[in-house]
Design a binder for these strands. Structure first.
Lengths: 214, 214, 214, 214
DNA sequence: GTCTAAACGAGACGGTACGTCGTGTCTTCGG
DNA sequence: CCGAAGACACGACGTACCGTCTCGTTTAGAC
């Protein structure tokens, strides 16, 4: 059951770390993707080693990115659906704006446009898990009768997340603190099933929808 | 009022055309940005001439893009606001999906991430005119009382356009024919002032939902 | 006998001067041959004009050189042969060392090595006139019985002039003030017919020839 | 005492050879200095490699030249001084006329005029060793009382060698078989201490010195 | 005085070579 | 077998001059 009796010198974990860190630092201090040369010399590692374990700088960057931010996806199923979705978008906004992830994602998006392998990897390992988590909450909402049955989950999820990426890439507007909340508020009326409570007060019901998240 | 008495050999319009066309063709048949070398030889033009008029391949691509699609922005002020916005988004979706513009925009977005000059140019000359046109319609709607006064125009415009770019870049979902309509429908309930129709149903007003947060 | 009835605008003498001067100045302030571009802009003349009148920078330089130093060749036939030859060599040494001619000749020699046209022009218009003048004096010496009849004039002339050019090009030793005199003294004993002086001391004759010039 | 434990891939000797040969061939079949491009493609070597080891085509040429003709300098101290010097000049004449060295030297002289690095290298590695060897023989002659004590060694050496280079560069006269002998004969009477032979005929001595070589 | 043909200025253009940078592969040695 | 060092081929970069070309604009002498 244990691994086969590995022969030869084992791979050095320190060097892997050094490479991932060096790549991230370089990516964040320059507009363009770092070069293999630069990563190698910054990490104090030979180019040979680099090419042995990663096919491109984008691959290095992606591995570092995923390792650092592998959490930040899961959310409680006990949360109200709207809160859960808002929290996810909000987490993304903070990630993109306040952590190195934003810079790395920018570079990786650029790389993925001209490189199919990067594109696939980035989609599968970064985007899809987050999309699936969001889709899960949407499905939960539909199942619970909180959301209209005809809701297009993909569209809703894109509508929620796209503005954040859009502003990250184009830079024409800031990633505000309340962006997540605002976007959810913008989408919610169209998908939420009106709660059939006493309905006594026509003005009240909608209010709770967002009063507590602002 | 005529042009100044041009000295020297005039610039060749044919060569300009050949370059713009060659660059576009190359960009559309390969994943990565074409090289200056490739554009020059494809266009039958010397590299020197290329560098004389354009600083980078992205600049060539952008000029060709703008020249081909300089229209497609203007919309009738007599249209209902919602129709006007939907038409704009729809025009973008068709441009990105059914014309070379989609491929060119992808490449240019990638380039703009690592090159500030391209970023500025693309934003100013492609994105801003379209954004302004959309903002104009939103303002018109607010002025006419069709949209809530507190509407955040930037957010609304981003919410309308971002999904299309998002799908173009990530490719995780198609640019459907009805994407524009769907996105507008998703956003509309949150921003539209309820028409004083029979007004029989007091539960309808999603409106109060957001009047105060914009 | 007069020139044909010239039509059109005549060539500008000022520009010709400006070009020749600019070329010489540039050649003297840089190790390498000046470029056509540099000459043109320095002279305030268009490149077109330059190419119209001269095929290369070497041609410009040569024309300027010849114009400036077209004299400095002729010497008196009444001078003693040895003095005449010494004076010629001395004139060359001063030209190469104390005037711009040295720098120009260096550049032109370099150019002539890789360009046949320059080579021919330089040989015909610079070297040959000087060689012929020297050969004339040698022939005069032979005719007057001052020099041995078997003297090889070409060899003697080369022996006299070569050291100066050699030092100019290689720069391993200076062009001394007394170089001309020293070289002549070195060659003279071998070619001079001994004057039938008292001839008392058979060992002495060669010594005085160079004792006083060394 | 052995070499340090060489790390990395060792330099390829074949490529070095290929480059040196290609450069020499190109230099000999064209008037101008070969280009780095041409050398690289002729040698089947990448331009990068070329630039890694040599800063210019002149450097390549010089290295090839020195390697091929690194001998041809040393001469026997047992030889009579005059014979030794004549042999040296003769060796140079043959080198310049009958081997590729002549062509290479021409190109290198041209290059050295406009490039200080080439100039220094050519002087130090080609000219100086030969000059020193000649100076050695002259010093030997002075020490042995064969040459006048006041002889200027630099001048004598230049007088001996300059004519050969002069004719190589200017091409106005051929490098004859007997050039070395003729030049030595021309210089000898001025520097040789008369051998105290019978000294019977005071008029004869100079004559034999050159009578037979003219 | 025109007329006119050459000289001239400005600058676009196709080329060739430059020297550099980054890539990815290969070769050799040491841990 | 891992890793370091470094040679190497390749492709693109952006620049410098080259020599040619195509315009428009002088300008002095011929008519």
């Amino acid at each position: 059951m244990n691994s086969p009796p590995r022969r030869g010198r084992p791979r050095s974990a320190e060097r892997r770390r050094a490479v991932l860190d060096a790549a991230a630092e370089l990516a964040l201090t320059s507009a363009a993707l770092p070069t293999m040369d630069a990563i190698a010399s910054r990490a104090g590692v030979s180019r040979t080693t680099l090419y042995k374990w990663w096919p491109s700088t984008a691959a290095v960057l992606l591995e570092g990115l995923l390792e650092r931010f592998h959490t930040s996806i899961e959310f409680d199923d006990d949360m109200p659906v709207r809160d859960a979705l808002t929290a996810q978008v909000d987490a993304l906004v903070h990630l993109l704006r306040d952590t190195p992830a934003g810079g790395l994602i920018r570079q990786l998006m650029a790389a993925s446009i001209s490189d199919a392998a990067t594109s696939t990897a980035l989609l599968d390992q970064w985007m899809e898990p987050r999309r699936q988590a969001a889709l899960h909450h949407v499905a939960r909402g539909v199942a619970a009768g909180e959301l209209h049955a005809g809701t297009d989950p993909d569209l809703v999820v894109d509508a929620l997340f796209a503005p954040a990426y859009h502003r990250l890439v184009w830079g024409h507007a800031p990633l505000d603190d309340d962006l997540a909340e605002s976007v959810c508020a913008l989408v919610w009326p169209a998908i939420a099933v009106p709660t059939s409570r006493p309905a006594a007060d026509p003005a009240a019901p909608p209010a709770p929808d967002r009063g507590e998240h602002a």
